[in-house]
């Protein structure tokens, strides 16, 4: 195996280990989401970089597509998780909460949260 590819793959797997340990060891959900939302895509990026050096240009293009699909979409999903926890779980708060006093924008609340007028909620949450 190409030495540079081997180093990058090992570095990527080390970062993946950090993501896993971070997910287990952190105590507040906000800290855990950082492990899931940042460390994991970076681990995949480094491993994919190493693998694309090893494999030909054809597979490197596919790896680039997968890496782009991952790093562009997953942090957004994890950010939605941050927002969901922030809105529904008043017990845990991040250390610095800049959204503390601000009202919630009604457009961003999912439509199923408030039923259309006159229609009773089918089953209360």
């Amino acid at each position: 195996m190409n030495p540079v590819a081997a180093i990058l793959i090992l570095a990527g797997s080390a970062v993946a280990l950090l993501a896993g340990f971070g997910l287990v060891r952190f105590n507040s959900p906000y800290a855990r989401f950082h492990a899931a939302g940042k460390a994991a895509p970076i681990a995949f990026l480094i491993a994919a970089g190493g693998a694309s050096i090893e494999l030909g240009a054809n597979d490197a293009a596919r790896l680039l597509l997968a890496a782009a699909a991952l790093t562009l979409t997953l942090p957004v999903g994890i950010h939605l998780l941050f927002r969901a926890v922030h809105r529904t779980d008043p017990t845990t708060r991040p250390a610095v909460d800049e959204l503390a006093g601000q009202p919630i924008d009604p457009e961003t609340v999912p439509s199923s949260a408030h039923p259309p007028d006159g229609e009773e909620h089918l089953h209360d949450p």
Binding site: S13, A19, G20, A66
Partner: peptide
């Protein structure tokens, strides 16, 4: 999500290996 990510990493590393 982290589990899916480790699956993707394992796939990449297997392909490289």
């Amino acid at each position: 999500d982290v589990a899916l990510m480790s699956l993707m990493g394992a796939i990449v590393v297997r392909a490289a290996g």
